Amino acid sequence: MRIALTGASGKLGTVVARELRAQGHTVIGLDVVGTRAPDFVQVDLTDYGQVIDALTAVGDTHDGFDAVVHLGAIPAPGIRADVATFHNNITATFNVLWAAVRLGITRIVTASSETVLGLPFDVPPPYVPVDEEYPARPESTYSLSKHLEEQLAVQLTRWNPAVSISALRFSNVMVPEDYARFPSFDADPLLRKWNLWGYIDARDGAQAVERALEAAIPGLNAYIIAAADTVMTTPNSALLDAVFPDVPVHGEIGENTTLLSIDKARRMLGYEPLHSWRDEV
């Protein structure tokens, strides 16, 4: 596929670009920052004119796309002012999705976030493992923007039934260099309770992107994308007893299996994490 990748200069975007190219796809990166290259175009995603122009053609760089992967965003709360985060992310996502649909691109993957599940879980989750079945619980303007981006996609795909938009609710993105500090998390279960001790290896994030592009299931489909395990060696039962003693457990949980359910992504996309911090430390 010929793929436009927004946020190509980011932590996840650089890995997604590398992995998709390794699988034989043509990837053109679109970002507001980045190094000049034949496969990169500098674009301000908050400017619709730049977005639709870049998705249509840029000189000899490309002449259109089969798919769009939208990772470009202020990637977390607390980096910029709340209102700046909201305005940037909502505007950028509307521009990218609207332009893609207008151009007849029907395969779209967009970065949602685990935060819509209720992070940092100061109000306990309704049950564990958490999944995509309960209503969104945004607790920050960043998370609110991600929830509203999903709702935008619901309506765009309702208007355009052939369009597939996969909203990947990525957990905390990690690369192998991050894993050296993981053993220190065991000292205090509260250190990482904010996302139920979850994470996602960026390489598996890239796998999820490719699987979603290949499946291209019509409509808006949201998927939690996390590693198969937690960041802890402390067993899940001990973590839950200490931090969330009154939260119901749905089904069986393993000793260190993820509490961010990836069952839907496994079932519908064939996603299966291949990387664990335990293999790196």
Rank of each mutant, 00 (worst) to 15 (best):
Lys193Ser: 15
Arg181Trp: 02
Phe185Cys: 07
Val163Lys: 05
Leu196Thr: 14
Asn172Pro: 01
Asn172Leu: 00
Val163Ala: 11
Ser164Trp: 02
Trp197Lys: 09
Leu190Phe: 14
Val175Leu: 11
Glu177Gln: 06
Leu191Tyr: 06
Asp201Ala: 12
Pro189Cys: 08
Arg158Asp: 11
Leu156Met: 15
Asp178Lys: 09
Pro183His: 01
Phe170Asn: 00
Arg181Gln: 09
Ala187Trp: 03
Leu168Thr: 04
Asp188Ala: 13
Asp188Ile: 12
Ser184Phe: 03
Arg181Pro: 03
Ser164Lys: 02
Asp186Lys: 10
Asn195Leu: 11
Ile200Thr: 11
Leu156Pro: 13
Pro189His: 04
Arg181Gly: 02
Ser166Arg: 00
Arg169Thr: 00
Asn160Arg: 12
Leu196Cys: 15
Ser166Tyr: 04
Trp197Thr: 07
Leu196Pro: 14
Asp188His: 13
Ile200Lys: 07
Pro161Phe: 05
Phe170Trp: 04
Val173Arg: 02
Lys193His: 14
Asp188Ser: 14
Pro189Ala: 06
Glu177Pro: 01
Asp201Lys: 10
Arg181Val: 04
Ala167Glu: 01
Val163Pro: 10
Leu196Ser: 15
Gln155Arg: 06
Pro176Met: 14
Asn172Trp: 04
Ser164Cys: 04
Gln155Tyr: 04
Ala167Tyr: 05
Ser164Glu: 10
Val175Trp: 00
Ala180His: 08
Leu156Lys: 09
Trp197Phe: 09
Ser171His: 10
Ala187Asp: 06
Gly198Glu: 08
Val175Asp: 08
Leu191Ser: 09
Tyr199Gln: 10
Phe170Asp: 00
Trp159Ser: 08
Lys193Ile: 11
Leu168Arg: 01
Ser171Thr: 04
Ser171Gly: 10
Arg181Thr: 03
Arg192Cys: 14
Tyr199Thr: 06
Ala162Asp: 15
Ser164His: 07
Asp178Met: 13
Lys193Ala: 15
Leu168Phe: 03
Phe182Ala: 13
Asn160Lys: 12
Trp197Met: 09
Asn160Trp: 10
Pro183Lys: 00
Arg192Glu: 15
Lys193Val: 13
Arg158Trp: 02
Ala187Met: 03
Pro176Gly: 13
Asn195Ala: 14
Phe185Arg: 06
Thr157Ile: 12
Gly198Asn: 12
Arg158Leu: 09
Ala162Tyr: 05
Ile200Pro: 06
Val163Ser: 09
Pro176Phe: 11
Met174Leu: 06
Pro176Glu: 13
Asn195Phe: 10
Trp159Ile: 00
Ala167Ser: 12
Trp194Phe: 15
Trp159Asn: 04
Leu190Met: 15
Tyr199Ser: 12
Ala187Cys: 07
Pro176Ser: 13
Arg158Thr: 10
Tyr179Ser: 07
Asn172Val: 06
Trp197Leu: 08
Asn195Ile: 08
Phe182Val: 13
Leu196Arg: 14
Arg158Ile: 03
